[in-house]
């Protein structure tokens, strides 16, 4: 237990040190995404005012955009960490430590969650400011739903991370995940029930309920929350399972490093 806390603390320290040292990089990347958002949002509003499209209100767009960013970041925290550390040679050190790799990624992800929270807060603030949209920022209701939603992102991260270990140069394909995530967040899982099984879709629906429609955690219903977590854990289990298979194969092929 003590060792796990030390591990967690070590990753908090590492993440905050590197964030402090390289925050310009993170913000630079965010700025690009923000400009894209503005262009999309502007275009969308333009179409709406021309009466060309019947669509979601501005609130929904903002929420979808920010949630997409959070899911993307979380997925990348897992996938990109596995990829770069395999390349750098630090992955092998992590594998030789006293902790199982799952715990190590867990500690990393928890530490990154707080950094992402900070980045998302900035992004959300900017989006709300420039669009004039207001949201029901009920953080207490939001957090559990958010975490349940992000479990699915972790699953995708492990899935892609495992595939990367095996095939190394697949960056051009992993780019697609970004776009798939947009679709997943935007799907109407509130109306089409089977869509709730997809990563992030049901969580996105519940988050819209809170932020846009003003629902509370209890208002969402315990059953629905349980379903959200069950789906998230399922995705995580499948992703981690695939990762474990790939990891075994990589050890067999001697490819845990960067061969």
């Amino acid at each position: 237990m003590r060792e796990k806390l030390l591990l967690l603390r070590a990753f908090f320290k590492m993440e905050f040190i590197t964030f402090r040292r390289y925050w310009m990089n993170s913000l630079g990347g965010m700025l690009t995404l923000y400009v894209i958002f503005l262009v999309l949002f502007g275009g969308y509003q333009g179409l709406r005012s021309l009466g060309g499209v019947e669509g979601d209100p501005a609130e929904v767009i903002v929420v979808g955009y920010v949630l997409w960013f959070f899911m993307l970041s979380t997925y990348q925290d897992v996938w990109y960490t596995i990829r770069t550390e395999a390349q750098q040679g630090t992955l092998e050190q992590l594998y030789m430590s006293i902790h199982p790799f799952g715990w190590i990624m867990g500690a990393k992800v928890v530490a990154r969650f707080f950094i992402n929270l900070l980045l998302v807060a900035i992004l959300l603030g900017a989006a709300l400011f420039t669009t004039g949209v207001t949201l029901n920022l009920d953080l207490l209701s939001l957090m559990p739903v958010l975490i349940g939603t992000l479990l699915s992102s972790l699953g995708i991260g492990f899935l892609i991370g495992g595939i990367t270990l095996m095939f190394k140069r697949i960056d051009s394909y992993t780019q697609m995940v970004q776009f798939i995530l947009i679709a997943l967040v935007a799907l109407p899982a509130d109306r089409v029930l089977w869509m709730r099984l997809l990563p992030g879709s049901y969580g996105a629906t519940l988050i819209r309920n809170i932020l846009v429609d003003g629902a509370t955690l209890w208002g969402l219903g315990v059953g629905n929350l349980a379903m959200l977590f069950a789906i998230g854990l399922l995705h995580l289990a499948v992703g981690y399972g695939v990762y474990t298979l790939c990891e075994k194969k990589a050890m067999f092929l001697g490819m845990l490093g960067h061969y």
Binding site: L7, R9, Q88, L94, S97, G257
Partner: peptide, 27 residues
């Protein structure tokens, strides 16, 4: 183990931070 010469340390951490991180990693 040191497997890849200079590659198995974190390049964005300082010398001391690397030593601290790996101490904690090993409990």
């Amino acid at each position: 183990a040191v497997l890849e010469g200079n590659r198995n340390i974190y390049w964005r951490l300082t010398t001391r931070e690397n030593l601290e991180f790996f101490t904690a990693l090993n409990g």
